[in-house]
Design a protein around this nucleic acid. Structure first.
Lengths: 258, 258
DNA sequence: GAGTGTGAACTTATTCACAGCT
DNA sequence: AGCTGTGAATAAGTTCACACTC
């Protein structure tokens, strides 16, 4: 205020909204595809469609990064690819370790997306001695006793946990103690970490459950008036009396579902 | 659960915030663990800790479902497990199909989390004829030509896509045409679907990129002045002469990073 | 004319803090 | 005394709509 007009919006890499950060990879993917097709420029409308968001949101997101577009024209694809890559820290290579090379871990290791731009699998680690030395995705599995050494020697700061739930926390603790400060957790458990360590989780069954919620609602709603499924116990408008009315519907049945 | 008995989400359950829905599975998991340990009741504080959220948020979340707690005491674990299960639609069984039984698909099929409460894998489907008939996770892979029939005969409304990116949209279209209204997408691509169809996506490389963003920021910030890791690719101050000031920092280098 | 960049309005989500029940 | 349930306050995220630039 005092300065009248700070011409520069506070867009230092600082203070990019989390929701925006989460969409940058999406934009980057769409832009990369355009780049491969040698498309020189793209409008917010087109790019938004390719990324599955609306154009106002995209423009707003980009505005946090800076003014990278040209009015009346759009965005230069190559230029944006670079700027977003830089913002995401993908102009450097991040060595990562993956712990837990079971079904899922092995699949992830083989998965191309992992080795994509910006990341390099430095080591695969497992606690099962019979796995050690076996090649997975072209690299030998290493024993978990060497975790600290591996992290240290490779300067790893990002770890992926794909162990069973029971082992995840202790693996996490070891990774953090060894210097890892970002963790991607595929184990279905909540990890606790000290301040300064980021955890992101991917949980299949949670995603399915969220879908089931909406699915159920769709089923209950179809037809509106002529419902296929009867509305079941409409709450009497009276609400309460001697009724210890709890939830909106359905008290606990005598027998719990297994 | 026999046919109907889909509880109509009556009165209050209309409009449970999406953010709350996304956390219900988390609470459910924590509660299930308590239930297995035969813990009878739990306070919002304890449960919140187990689920990795703060207690105010948890209480607020639960308040959208109804008044399921007892003041001065806490929540009855079994009761809550049932109520949340019901809210999520897990008191019925959802048959799901999985399309794309490659590395990742097979891993997911084997993954216990999938077959967990409320879901049943009705079929594994692949487009590779050489996969067909092979048992994966104890069930034979079926050919994609039968997709429509499988969806129809099993009353499938939830589909999981684990194909390569290039095939995802067409698989999605076929699933939707066959009657699927919820899709969990593991392919690194944006799916477009008609209104009324829900899509959730899981993308490893996006998650990693988000971590890299924060990681980069940490590195750039430590010590304030002299960073341990040099930011790599220091921009040549070259670029544009007339200082058409674009972003907060860094213009495009002459050579794009691969 | 076309399309970005962005304040302002609006919506959704989180946190606070305390009244009210057991 | 203890802990839930929830309005009220705050923060974060989205959408609108239009001035401005090319």
């Amino acid at each position: 205020m005092a300065t009248g007009r700070t011409h520069r919006p506070a867009t230092r890499s600082r203070g990019i909204p989390e929701a925006t950060v989460a969409r940058l990879p999406l934009y980057l993917r769409a832009l990369t595809a355009l780049s491969e097709r040698s498309v020189p420029t793209v409008s917010s409308e087109e790019l938004a469609a390719a990324a599955g968001v609306n154009s106002a949101k995209l423009r707003k997101d980009f505005s946090y990064l800076g003014s990278y577009g040209t009015r009346g024209v759009g965005y230069d694809v190559e230029y944006l690819v670079y700027q977003i890559s830089r913002e995401l820290g993908l102009t450097q290579d991040w060595p990562i370790v993956m712990v837990g090379i079971g079904n899922l871990g092995a699949a992830l290791a083989n998965y191309g997306g992992f080795a994509s731009r910006g990341f390099r699998v430095a080591a695969l680690i497992d606690a099962d001695p019979s796995m050690v030395g076996k090649p997975v995705a072209g690299m030998p599995v290493q024993y978990i006793d060497d975790l600290e050494k591996i992290v240290d020697e490779n300067g790893v700061s990002i770890g992926v946990i794909a162990t069973p739930a029971g082992a995840a926390q202790q693996v996490c603790d070891r990774l953090v103690a060894a210097g890892v400060t970002s963790i991607l957790n595929f184990a279905p458990t909540v990890l606790s970490v000290p301040d300064g360590v980021d955890v992101r989780k991917v949980d299949l069954s949670i995603e399915l459950q969220i879908l089931a919620f909406h699915e159920q609602r769709k089923a209950g709603e179809e037809g509106g008036g002529e419902a296929v499924l009867p509305p079941v116990v409409r709450e009497p408008a009276t609400a309460t009396q001697a009724d210890d009315r709890k939830g909106p519907d359905g008290d606990m049945p005598a027998v719990m579902p297994a």
